[in-house]
Amino acid sequence: MLTFGRARALEVQIDQFLDLIGKGAMVFKEGCRAYLSGDREEFERHLAAICDLEGRADIIRKDSEKILYRYSLIPESRGDVLGLLENLDNVIDSCKHTLNQFNVQKPNFPEEFNEGILELTNQSVESIISVVGASRGFFENTRSIQDHINKVDFHENEADHLSLKLQGRVFEMDLRLSHKMHLSFFIQRVERLSDLAEIVAERLAIASIKRTI
């Protein structure tokens, strides 16, 4: 039988999970900044931090899912919540993977791209932070979900637009095609984070309609 204490503990656990996703997004942004500025030491510190955050998020997610199933909690919304946790986990997973690829493939961005890449990173990270806010709103049943979802939409659109602009500039430059393809790949990876955030937001929009009595 589920006790109130255990239900409360799970509440805290889910809250921690959301914290980790939000932190992960910010660490990702700082990691990108360090990479572009050539500060290897800082970059590696952020890479290690995001690996740690992703690992912890994974453990919490699996544990929460187990408790949700074991005690048959929130039968009406369980599917939605499990999907939400998994999709949010994909977001931090993708952040970690992208930083790892920066580390492994070491893309060589011409300096004039730094500002654009940082802006793109910023838009993607903002969309992740907004979707974390929307998720909290969903769990705590506040009316703020829609505001957060609107923000996610806005930042995803901005990221889309920026990504296309940056890729256009890359292919206009006098570089080898393989180099152009390489840079384009990284631009798309960073932009992809906002797409993942948008997927979560879309699920939340439907799940919150289902949450009405």
Binding site: L2, F4, A7, R8, L10, E11, I14, L73, I74, S77, V81, F138, F139, E140, N141, T142, R143, R211, I213
Partner: peptide, 13 residues
Amino acid sequence: LSRVRLHILALDY
């Protein structure tokens, strides 16, 4: 419920 903010798990409990 629109006034009292209850966590989905607390409400479930």
